[in-house]
Design a protein around this nucleic acid. Structure first.
Length: 284
DNA sequence: TATAATGTTAGACT
DNA sequence: AAGTCTAACATTAT
Protein backbone atom coordinates (compact mmCIF):
# COMPACT_ATOMS: atom_id res chain seq x y z
CA UNK A 1 0.00 0.00 0.00
CA UNK A 2 2.45 2.71 0.94
CA UNK A 3 5.03 4.16 -1.41
CA UNK A 4 7.51 6.94 -0.73
CA UNK A 5 4.97 9.74 -0.12
CA UNK A 6 2.92 7.67 2.29
CA UNK A 7 5.98 6.47 4.21
CA UNK A 8 7.37 10.02 4.28
CA UNK A 9 4.04 11.22 5.70
CA UNK A 10 4.20 8.62 8.47
CA UNK A 11 7.84 9.47 9.11
CA UNK A 12 7.13 13.17 9.62
CA UNK A 13 4.21 12.40 11.90
CA UNK A 14 6.19 9.86 13.93
CA UNK A 15 8.83 12.54 14.46
CA UNK A 16 6.19 14.60 16.21
CA UNK A 17 5.35 11.90 18.76
CA UNK A 18 8.18 9.38 19.25
CA UNK A 19 11.57 11.03 19.89
CA UNK A 20 12.45 10.94 23.59
CA UNK A 21 9.77 8.36 24.37
CA UNK A 22 10.70 5.22 26.29
CA UNK A 23 9.53 1.84 25.02
CA UNK A 24 7.47 0.40 27.86
CA UNK A 25 6.13 -2.78 26.29
CA UNK A 26 5.87 -4.60 22.98
CA UNK A 27 2.93 -6.79 22.10
CA UNK A 28 3.36 -9.16 19.18
CA UNK A 29 -0.01 -10.28 17.87
CA UNK A 30 1.21 -12.08 14.75
CA UNK A 31 3.92 -14.70 15.09
CA UNK A 32 4.98 -14.08 11.49
CA UNK A 33 6.74 -10.95 12.73
CA UNK A 34 9.17 -13.12 14.73
CA UNK A 35 10.82 -12.20 18.00
CA UNK A 36 11.49 -8.57 18.82
CA UNK A 37 14.16 -8.25 21.48
CA UNK A 38 16.28 -5.62 23.18
CA UNK A 39 13.93 -2.65 22.84
CA UNK A 40 12.01 -2.46 26.11
CA UNK A 41 13.39 0.15 28.48
CA UNK A 42 15.22 2.00 25.70
CA UNK A 43 14.40 5.37 24.24
CA UNK A 44 13.58 6.55 20.71
CA UNK A 45 16.32 8.87 19.49
CA UNK A 46 15.20 9.56 15.92
CA UNK A 47 12.86 8.46 13.13
CA UNK A 48 14.07 8.24 9.53
CA UNK A 49 12.91 6.99 6.16
CA UNK A 50 15.00 4.90 3.80
CA UNK A 51 13.05 4.35 0.60
CA UNK A 52 9.87 2.63 1.74
CA UNK A 53 11.44 1.58 5.06
CA UNK A 54 10.80 3.40 8.31
CA UNK A 55 13.71 3.41 10.72
CA UNK A 56 13.28 4.01 14.41
CA UNK A 57 16.65 4.70 16.00
CA UNK A 58 16.84 3.40 19.55
CA UNK A 59 19.26 4.33 22.36
CA UNK A 60 22.06 1.81 22.76
CA UNK A 61 22.90 1.60 19.06
CA UNK A 62 19.86 -0.25 17.70
CA UNK A 63 17.66 0.47 14.70
CA UNK A 64 14.17 -0.94 14.31
CA UNK A 65 13.22 -1.18 10.64
CA UNK A 66 9.59 -1.39 9.57
CA UNK A 67 8.35 -2.14 6.06
CA UNK A 68 4.61 -1.95 5.48
CA UNK A 69 4.66 -3.91 2.19
CA UNK A 70 1.20 -4.12 0.57
CA UNK A 71 -1.40 -3.57 3.25
CA UNK A 72 0.44 -2.32 6.35
CA UNK A 73 -0.70 0.80 8.18
CA UNK A 74 0.41 2.56 11.33
CA UNK A 75 -1.92 4.13 13.84
CA UNK A 76 -1.05 6.25 16.85
CA UNK A 77 -3.38 5.72 19.79
CA UNK A 78 -2.78 8.62 22.14
CA UNK A 79 -2.60 7.92 25.84
CA UNK A 80 -1.96 4.69 27.71
CA UNK A 81 -3.96 1.85 26.14
CA UNK A 82 -4.18 -1.77 27.27
CA UNK A 83 -3.71 -2.93 23.70
CA UNK A 84 -4.46 -6.63 24.04
CA UNK A 85 -8.02 -5.95 25.10
CA UNK A 86 -8.62 -3.91 21.97
CA UNK A 87 -7.41 -6.13 19.19
CA UNK A 88 -9.01 -8.24 16.52
CA UNK A 89 -6.76 -10.39 14.43
CA UNK A 90 -9.34 -10.93 11.73
CA UNK A 91 -12.23 -8.97 10.39
CA UNK A 92 -15.13 -11.32 10.93
CA UNK A 93 -17.61 -9.11 9.16
CA UNK A 94 -17.14 -6.05 11.30
CA UNK A 95 -16.95 -2.67 9.58
CA UNK A 96 -13.74 -0.69 9.51
CA UNK A 97 -14.05 3.05 9.57
CA UNK A 98 -11.45 5.51 8.39
CA UNK A 99 -9.38 5.62 11.56
CA UNK A 100 -8.87 1.87 11.64
CA UNK A 101 -11.34 1.49 14.44
CA UNK A 102 -14.18 -0.97 14.32
CA UNK A 103 -17.63 0.43 14.87
CA UNK A 104 -18.17 3.10 17.50
CA UNK A 105 -17.47 3.18 21.19
CA UNK A 106 -14.11 2.05 22.57
CA UNK A 107 -11.55 1.56 19.79
CA UNK A 108 -11.04 -1.93 18.45
CA UNK A 109 -8.42 -2.39 15.78
CA UNK A 110 -9.02 -4.96 13.07
CA UNK A 111 -5.96 -6.77 11.76
CA UNK A 112 -3.68 -5.54 14.53
CA UNK A 113 -0.31 -7.29 14.31
CA UNK A 114 1.96 -5.37 16.66
CA UNK A 115 1.74 -2.80 19.42
CA UNK A 116 4.57 -0.70 20.81
CA UNK A 117 3.56 1.00 24.03
CA UNK A 118 5.08 4.36 25.07
CA UNK A 119 4.16 6.69 27.94
CA UNK A 120 2.44 9.09 25.52
CA UNK A 121 0.59 6.48 23.48
CA UNK A 122 0.71 3.23 21.55
CA UNK A 123 1.97 2.67 18.01
CA UNK A 124 -0.19 0.03 16.34
CA UNK A 125 0.67 -1.88 13.18
CA UNK A 126 -2.45 -2.82 11.22
CA UNK A 127 -1.88 -5.23 8.34
CA UNK A 128 -4.62 -7.39 6.80
CA UNK A 129 -2.36 -9.27 4.40
CA UNK A 130 0.41 -9.78 6.96
CA UNK A 131 3.30 -9.01 4.62
CA UNK A 132 4.77 -6.26 6.82
CA UNK A 133 8.16 -6.83 8.45
CA UNK A 134 9.72 -5.42 11.61
CA UNK A 135 13.36 -6.14 12.41
CA UNK A 136 15.86 -4.90 14.96
CA UNK A 137 19.48 -4.47 13.94
CA UNK A 138 22.64 -2.77 15.14
CA UNK A 139 22.90 0.67 13.50
CA UNK A 140 26.02 -0.02 11.47
CA UNK A 141 24.41 -2.96 9.65
CA UNK A 142 21.89 -0.68 7.96
CA UNK A 143 22.52 -0.74 4.18
CA UNK A 144 23.58 2.43 2.42
CA UNK A 145 20.89 4.68 1.02
CA UNK A 146 20.35 4.48 -2.73
CA UNK A 147 19.25 7.58 -4.57
CA UNK A 148 16.12 9.07 -3.02
CA UNK A 149 13.95 11.15 -5.38
CA UNK A 150 12.93 13.73 -2.77
CA UNK A 151 15.06 16.74 -3.54
CA UNK A 152 16.31 15.59 -6.92
CA UNK A 153 17.28 12.70 -9.20
CA UNK A 154 20.21 12.57 -11.56
CA UNK A 155 18.93 12.00 -15.10
CA UNK A 156 22.44 11.21 -16.23
CA UNK A 157 22.83 8.47 -13.63
CA UNK A 158 19.47 6.92 -14.57
CA UNK A 159 20.44 6.89 -18.24
CA UNK A 160 23.84 5.41 -17.40
CA UNK A 161 22.30 2.51 -15.45
CA UNK A 162 19.57 1.96 -18.04
CA UNK A 163 21.98 1.93 -20.96
CA UNK A 164 22.34 -1.86 -20.98
CA UNK A 165 18.90 -2.79 -19.59
CA UNK A 166 16.12 -4.14 -21.68
CA UNK A 167 13.42 -4.36 -19.00
CA UNK A 168 10.39 -2.05 -19.39
CA UNK A 169 10.96 1.46 -18.09
CA UNK A 170 8.12 1.06 -15.60
CA UNK A 171 9.84 -1.92 -13.97
CA UNK A 172 13.09 0.06 -14.00
CA UNK A 173 11.49 2.89 -12.02
CA UNK A 174 10.10 0.43 -9.48
CA UNK A 175 13.43 -1.34 -8.88
CA UNK A 176 14.26 -0.38 -5.29
CA UNK A 177 17.96 -1.11 -5.80
CA UNK A 178 18.12 1.75 -8.30
CA UNK A 179 15.71 4.37 -6.98
CA UNK A 180 14.26 4.33 -3.47
CA UNK A 181 10.54 4.62 -3.06
CA UNK A 182 8.62 4.47 -6.35
CA UNK A 183 5.80 1.89 -6.46
CA UNK A 184 2.94 1.05 -8.78
CA UNK A 185 0.81 4.19 -8.44
CA UNK A 186 3.60 6.71 -8.83
CA UNK A 187 5.42 4.76 -11.57
CA UNK A 188 2.23 5.00 -13.68
CA UNK A 189 1.76 8.68 -12.86
CA UNK A 190 5.40 9.60 -13.51
CA UNK A 191 5.39 7.96 -16.93
CA UNK A 192 2.16 9.69 -17.88
CA UNK A 193 3.60 13.05 -16.81
CA UNK A 194 6.75 12.30 -18.82
CA UNK A 195 4.73 11.17 -21.84
CA UNK A 196 6.48 7.80 -22.10
CA UNK A 197 4.98 4.37 -22.86
CA UNK A 198 5.58 2.16 -19.79
CA UNK A 199 6.49 -0.80 -22.02
CA UNK A 200 9.46 0.89 -23.66
CA UNK A 201 12.79 -0.83 -23.00
CA UNK A 202 14.84 1.23 -20.54
CA UNK A 203 17.81 1.36 -22.87
CA UNK A 204 15.71 3.01 -25.57
CA UNK A 205 15.00 6.32 -23.84
CA UNK A 206 16.79 9.42 -25.11
CA UNK A 207 18.72 11.76 -22.79
CA UNK A 208 15.87 14.25 -23.08
CA UNK A 209 13.38 11.56 -22.04
CA UNK A 210 15.46 10.63 -19.00
CA UNK A 211 15.57 14.29 -18.02
CA UNK A 212 11.78 14.33 -18.21
CA UNK A 213 11.50 11.13 -16.14
CA UNK A 214 13.84 12.49 -13.48
CA UNK A 215 12.07 15.84 -13.34
CA UNK A 216 8.58 14.31 -13.22
CA UNK A 217 9.59 11.74 -10.60
CA UNK A 218 10.56 14.52 -8.24
CA UNK A 219 7.53 16.66 -9.06
CA UNK A 220 4.95 13.86 -8.74
CA UNK A 221 6.42 12.51 -5.50
CA UNK A 222 6.84 15.92 -3.89
CA UNK A 223 3.27 16.87 -4.68
CA UNK A 224 2.08 13.56 -3.22
CA UNK A 225 4.05 14.23 -0.04
CA UNK A 226 2.48 17.69 0.19
CA UNK A 227 -0.92 15.96 -0.20
CA UNK A 228 -0.06 13.45 2.56
CA UNK A 229 -0.38 10.48 0.22
CA UNK A 230 -2.90 8.88 -2.13
CA UNK A 231 -6.05 7.37 -0.65
CA UNK A 232 -7.64 5.23 -3.36
CA UNK A 233 -8.85 2.55 -0.99
CA UNK A 234 -7.47 2.33 2.48
CA UNK A 235 -4.36 4.46 2.99
CA UNK A 236 -4.55 6.49 6.22
CA UNK A 237 -1.90 8.52 7.97
CA UNK A 238 -0.69 8.03 11.56
CA UNK A 239 -3.74 9.81 12.93
CA UNK A 240 -6.34 8.12 10.72
CA UNK A 241 -6.69 10.83 8.06
CA UNK A 242 -6.74 10.08 4.32
CA UNK A 243 -4.48 11.91 1.87
CA UNK A 244 -5.63 14.10 -1.02
CA UNK A 245 -3.29 13.11 -3.86
CA UNK A 246 -5.97 10.86 -5.39
CA UNK A 247 -7.42 14.13 -6.73
CA UNK A 248 -4.31 14.48 -8.90
CA UNK A 249 -4.18 10.98 -10.38
CA UNK A 250 -4.12 11.11 -14.17
CA UNK A 251 -4.10 7.40 -15.02
CA UNK A 252 -3.86 5.06 -12.03
CA UNK A 253 -7.00 2.94 -11.64
CA UNK A 254 -8.72 5.01 -14.39
CA UNK A 255 -9.14 2.13 -16.85
CA UNK A 256 -11.71 3.03 -19.50
CA UNK A 257 -12.03 6.62 -18.31
CA UNK A 258 -11.28 9.71 -20.36
CA UNK A 259 -7.78 11.14 -20.47
CA UNK A 260 -8.05 14.70 -19.19
CA UNK A 261 -5.20 15.80 -21.45
CA UNK A 262 -6.24 14.41 -24.86
CA UNK A 263 -9.77 13.09 -24.39
CA UNK A 264 -8.74 9.54 -25.33
CA UNK A 265 -9.30 6.46 -23.26
CA UNK A 266 -7.04 5.26 -20.43
CA UNK A 267 -5.95 1.64 -20.91
CA UNK A 268 -4.92 -1.01 -18.45
CA UNK A 269 -2.30 -3.64 -19.23
CA UNK A 270 -0.44 -6.14 -17.04
CA UNK A 271 3.30 -5.85 -16.51
CA UNK A 272 5.15 -8.21 -14.20
CA UNK A 273 1.87 -9.35 -12.74
CA UNK A 274 0.86 -5.79 -11.79
CA UNK A 275 -1.62 -3.42 -13.36
CA UNK A 276 -0.27 -0.60 -15.50
CA UNK A 277 -2.52 2.28 -16.52
CA UNK A 278 -1.55 4.67 -19.29
CA UNK A 279 -2.87 6.81 -22.12
CA UNK A 280 -1.69 5.35 -25.43
CA UNK A 281 -1.94 8.62 -27.32
CA UNK A 282 -0.19 10.75 -24.65
CA UNK A 283 2.44 8.07 -23.99
CA UNK A 284 3.72 6.90 -27.39
C1' DT B 1 -16.15 -18.05 -8.51
C1' DA B 2 -12.39 -15.61 -10.47
C1' DT B 3 -9.66 -11.53 -10.41
C1' DA B 4 -7.10 -7.86 -8.52
C1' DA B 5 -5.13 -5.20 -4.68
C1' DT B 6 -0.15 1.20 -3.25
C1' DG B 7 5.60 -4.92 -2.34
C1' DT B 8 9.40 -7.82 -2.21
C1' DT B 9 12.16 -11.85 -3.24
C1' DA B 10 13.73 -16.77 -4.05
C1' DG B 11 14.46 -19.49 -7.66
C1' DA B 12 14.18 -20.54 -12.51
C1' DC B 13 15.41 -19.25 -16.84
C1' DT B 14 18.13 -16.71 -20.55
C1' DA C 1 27.37 -14.06 -14.79
C1' DA C 2 24.20 -10.79 -14.82
C1' DG C 3 19.76 -9.56 -16.26
C1' DT C 4 14.90 -10.84 -16.47
C1' DC C 5 10.71 -13.23 -15.39
C1' DT C 6 7.38 -15.87 -12.36
C1' DA C 7 5.38 -17.64 -8.46
C1' DA C 8 4.73 -17.16 -3.80
C1' DC C 9 3.67 -14.96 0.49
C1' DA C 10 -1.98 -14.02 3.11
C1' DT C 11 -6.30 -11.92 2.98
C1' DT C 12 -10.03 -9.30 1.48
C1' DA C 13 -13.14 -6.82 -1.74
C1' DT C 14 -15.64 -6.72 -6.00
Amino acid sequence: MPELPEVETLCRQLKSVLPGEEILRIEILDARLGKIEGLVGRRVEAVKRRGKFLQICISGGLTAELHLRMSGRLFWQKGGVPLLSRVRSSKKGEPLNGSGRIGSGPPFFAYSRLGIVFPAGTLILIDPRRFATFTVQPVESTPALVEDPLGGLSARRLREIARTRRLPVKSFLMDQRLIAGIGNIYACEILFAAGIDPRRPSSGLSPAEWRKVAKMSVAILERAVACRGTTVSDWRDLFGCGGTNQDHLAVYARHGEICRRCGGRIERITQGGRGTWFCPSCQP
